[in-house]
Amino acid sequence: MLRSYDIDVRRMRLVQYEDNAVYFVEGSSGKDPGETALYMLRISVRDGRSPAEQNSELDWMAALVADKAVTVPAPVATRSSGKVVTVEEPGWPEPATAVVFEWIPGRASPPYGRPRVAGELGAITARLHEHASGFRPPAGFVRPSWGHADVFENGAAMTDPTARDRLREDERRTLREVCAAVRERLPEQSAADWGVIHADLHRGNLVGTPDGTVAVIDFDDCGWGFYMLDVATVLSSVLRTCRKEPGAYDRFAEGYLDGYRSVRELPPAAARFDEFLVMRDMIILNFVLGSRNAAVLSWGPQRAQGILRLMQNYLKTGEYDGHLSLAS
């Protein structure tokens, strides 16, 4: 696959394999063969995004790089100036697609308790949304939607036979009731609330770089959605990490939201924050229940049970784990 790129590969190693296979690549570029260059190769081999969807993902990332909105991995063009390579490899049952990015060095999941980290992550989220609000997609731009119907009614937990078989009848009933409750409480889509979002902005996709900035990686799920879904995703991921430390989540949330507001006001939909926490966990539930990946299935069932318990409590109280009283 890398023959399509102007890269002389010296070594590569697998970093992650869930939906995609992600490799760290060390080599040099044809432009400067004497200098070591670092890249990330992402290969989609099963149920991945289409080439058109991946091209659109890279269009937004390239715009973020060009506009210096936030630090993101810069897409690397092929020898023919394309962005997505489609190839057939011996032993693979279907064509695979590959994209290459410049590698961003640093540490994923910046420590939530370190001074200024919360505010910086909030400001980065806001800058991402500020850019999205003015982004004019090029012709042929196609990305998934993360609205209510996409996440709940048409998600794997409600439609995939494999996923449904992993649930008891009372659990399926819980999901139907949660689906109806969130549908009733979510606001209408509006320009102030809805645009292109990252859609998987958990701590692991935020990288503290050696120069002291924070980069955003892994735009594979980016698409149309409520800006508050990104906010809920960050805060939910921090909550899972710090819940045993009294007061840590509230302190982080306060700093994070202050950082966001330093760039732009919270979207009006912030008033329904609990529903976005539920939506985030429903996305995880869809991923886990619909997965056939052995690594996911090693941790997924326990995570799914925890989410279902939280959803049952949400139906009783109207509040979800990580609840905050927010207003725009």
Rank of each mutant, 00 (worst) to 15 (best):
A52H: 07
P115C: 12
L201F: 01
M12H: 08
S28F: 07
G318I: 11
Y17L: 15
A52G: 09
A156Y: 11
L14A: 11
P268N: 09
F276H: 13
I284C: 13
V84S: 04
N205L: 03
A232I: 03
S262A: 09
L64Y: 13
V296M: 02
R143D: 00
E153S: 14
V178W: 15
T241G: 02
P51I: 02
D47H: 15
R42V: 03
S28G: 11
S236Y: 12
M311L: 08
D8Y: 12
Q302T: 10
G322N: 13
V142Q: 07
G322K: 10
R176T: 06
E153W: 12
P111R: 14
F219Q: 02
D220T: 04
L128C: 05
T317Y: 08
A69K: 06
T162S: 14
H131I: 00
G113C: 10
N55G: 15
V117S: 08
P93F: 00
S80Y: 04
L2S: 13
Q305H: 10
V196Y: 11
D230S: 01
M279G: 01
E102Y: 09
E89N: 09
H129K: 02
A271H: 10
A215T: 00
D321W: 06
Q302P: 03
V25N: 12
S109P: 13
L41R: 05
D165H: 15
F287D: 05
A132E: 00
E254C: 05
I197T: 02
R172K: 12
A294R: 10
D274I: 06
P137A: 02
T78F: 06
D6I: 00
M311D: 01
F276P: 14
A123P: 11
P93D: 04
R243I: 04
D220A: 07
G27V: 08
Y17R: 15
A66R: 14
G113R: 02
D19V: 06
V234N: 09
G119M: 10
V72C: 10
D220H: 08
P93Q: 01
G106W: 03
A327Y: 11
E254Q: 05
A270Y: 03
G106Y: 01
A270S: 10
Y5F: 14
G91K: 00
A74E: 15
R261M: 13
